[in-house]
Write a protein that binds this DNA or RNA. Structure first.
Lengths: 396, 396
DNA sequence: GCAGAATAATTACACAGTGTAAACATGGCG
DNA sequence: CGCCATGTTTACACTGTGTAATTATTCTGC
């Protein structure tokens, strides 16, 4: 009841408020105060600050009942961010604002083995065009983010074995003065689902977002800590079958060797990117034989087994799976639950673990990187790089 | 350089300072300021506060050079905490202070199947004796902690399937007004090694403390965040062999089924508690045959495999293993590294992962629970329960 | 012994960010 | 048109911080 003084830094409170706005696409002050655990007085001050900086806007909107809130606070659509997305088939970049629009986009085909020299050549040309577009409209880019499959491993990236220091240096030179964040594609996917597709993504609270694509990786999305909300979760290289199938990582029996898009495409004889492109009911349309179908069930069983193992180590009340398993018929998908039942302590129990499936989003690159860029901007409190750098020094 | 205002709550700063003192067994103010990232001014104020509350003491101790520090700050030995430790073979309780002494101890044999009724009977009697002892000396207990094997799982404790709410209620009644913390035995072990045995425990920075006993479980010890430093890490029920050995959890192929003390004792035909009691070179003394020895190597291989899997999910730069593998000859122990090599991404690399072994501590119960109680007291900032409760309300 | 050097420890001060409570604003309803 | 219910802002007191000046302590060299 007492509610005494609990200090937080200016950057942190601003970040909390902005993240809430990004997630909810606008909120009344009262709701903001509740979501951020601040008093209305504090929200008032922060919103006033943000408004003078033109980071947020207020739109008149009155509630149906007497004395309701008067103005809806939303993020300003004048803030623009840049997203760069690298995938196995193409490189794309785009500019967008917090409204979720993609105002500028360029997509270039790229090989899965795109090397760093080639990337720099490709991107340099694009950057010139981008700069022109931006300058012509007087747009002020505030944050850039690039998502890369396999990014973030200590041991180096097995998919794109690039030199990250060189990449940062290069982008820093080509995009001078623009704060840059690199991240794993899965993290960007999670950000996209959280911020750009809140409707299809009904999960509340802490959960694991697991993406089964070329790799098998996930993110722990921590709703309780609205900022620093994404921590990576590498599941693809858990060995579940000793002396099993060879994986591209060099080991044998990894989850990825069994359940990646590549493994599945071998089973059904369809190129990986086509599976996702066909979307819903990709199995039905294919008339796969029963042998292949049984194998797919088996693979999903293994996925469930590995997921159970992972959840034993890191318990989470909900899991959202995106990727090809979301496209299989529910009767086949049940193999995942069978697998869970053989590893998850106490077995699978609807009350303790909510498991849901969302269709993998395809062809909307670079919206994921864009969402992540928005998150990065917001989690920095929307402060200028200069004051941000000072903040870094403080903690050092 | 600038070092601006970075607010923290009073409780948190106090906790940071106290934890540092608990870990270092006393420090000069200058060192304290460095360790806690506070200015000497702040340390001065906090230490002054703590001293008036008689939580810390200062002992004159001059440095060898001119103008050195004058007084060593240590935790007051007047603060007493209570530790209760339940193991497979006995129930023990003891009172100690921050000096690491165990001033009162009672140990009762208990079966691995000790049920909650019996526990309450046993403990009620002990509590009376304890209360007398405490009252006779005018000792003011500040915190109690009880460690229980298998504690902390959502799905319930498979080893001691007690009702935790009932346990808390019972202890709250028997030990009125005494803050109580329940925890897993492994967490207590980690606290013991961190606070009571800093000499044998040369690991710096974040690491995983893995205990291989009746269960296989660990704790992530986070040195960077001095408070809230222990987060549980359940590895024992990772399924590494489909349709493998039956585990007491009901599943098949769990790590625990292969590498627990129970599994090992079956292999070599010696009761589990005796293995640890024999200590060093338990294999040599036993003259186990080559078949058994190979099996033990195999089991350690599996442990390494599982550990690699776990580290892929949750990378940590160092691992400390305590338990029977610490007692095997180094040539056999190398199987752990072989296992790691088959699962850890990038393989085992001395530069990226430091793996060390410490002997399992045996027969010093309830010192582990005592260490954990000290940690709990300290991480609450040494504040009275009343103000602590208020702090809880704030965050709620 | 005693001045001086070197460092530690304390204190005065300004500042930032908070919550409380009071004042002010807004819109629906009788 | 005034009342009421609620949202929003503002005045104020408070806490914990860092900076910088001040005071304390101990060793060194003579």
């Amino acid at each position: 009841m007492s509610g005494r003084f609990v200090p937080r830094s200016r950057k942190q409170t601003r970040a909390t408020v902005l993240e809430s706005l990004l997630r909810t696409k606008g909120a009344f002050r009262t709701d903001l105060a509740r979501e951020t655990s601040l008093t209305e007085a504090s929200v008032s001050r922060i919103v006033a600050d943000l408004r003078t900086e033109k980071l947020v806007e207020e739109r008149k909107e009155s509630a149906p009942h007497a004395g309701g809130p008067t103005a809806l606070v939303t993020l300003s659509n004048n803030i623009n961010v840049l997203g760069i997305e690298l995938s196995n088939s193409r490189l794309s970049l785009g500019v967008g604002n917090f409204g979720g629009t993609l105002d500028y986009v360029e997509r270039m085909p790229a090989s899965p083995n795109l090397d760093q020299d080639e990337f720099e050549r490709l991107f340099s040309a694009s950057a010139v065009a981008l700069r022109e577009w931006v300058d012509a409209r007087g747009i002020d880019l505030r944050q850039a983010a690039m998502s890369i499959p396999g990014y973030g491993r200590e041991a180096g990236n097995p998919i794109f074995p690039w030199d990250m220091a060189r990449l940062e240096g290069f982008l820093g030179k080509v995009l001078p003065g623009l704060p840059l964040a690199l991240t794993n594609s899965v993290v960007a996917q999670a950000a996209f689902n959280r911020y750009a597709m809140p409707s299809t993504y009904a999960v509340e609270g802490d959960h694991l977002f697991l993406f089964v694509g070329h790799g098998v990786a996930g993110v722990i999305v921590n709703e309780a800590e609205p900022i620093d909300a994404f921590s990576p979760f590498e599941m693809g290289h858990m060995v579940i079958e000793r002396d099993g199938l060879v994986c591209r990582c060099g080991h044998r029996g990894c989850v990825e060797a069994y359940t990646s898009l590549r493994a599945v495409s071998t089973i059904i004889g369809v190129p990986g990117n086509e599976i996702l492109a066909r979307g819903d009911r990709f199995l039905d349309a294919l008339e796969v034989d029963n042998v292949a179908r049984d194998m797919l069930r088996e693979r999903q069983f293994l996925l469930g087994l590995a997921l159970g193992n992972a959840l034993n180590l890191h318990p989470v009340p909900a899991v959202v799976i995106s990727g090809w398993p979301s496209l299989t018929p529910e009767s086949d998908r049940s193999a995942i639950f069978d697998g869970l039942n053989q590893s998850l302590l106490g077995g699978y129990d609807e009350g303790r673990l909510s498991l849901s499936f969302i269709a993998p989003s395809i062809g909307n690159d670079p919206k994921a990187a864009l969402s992540y860029a928005a998150y990065c901007f917001v989690s920095g409190g929307g402060l200028e790089a200069a004051s941000d750098a000072r903040a870094m020094e403080e903690t050092a």
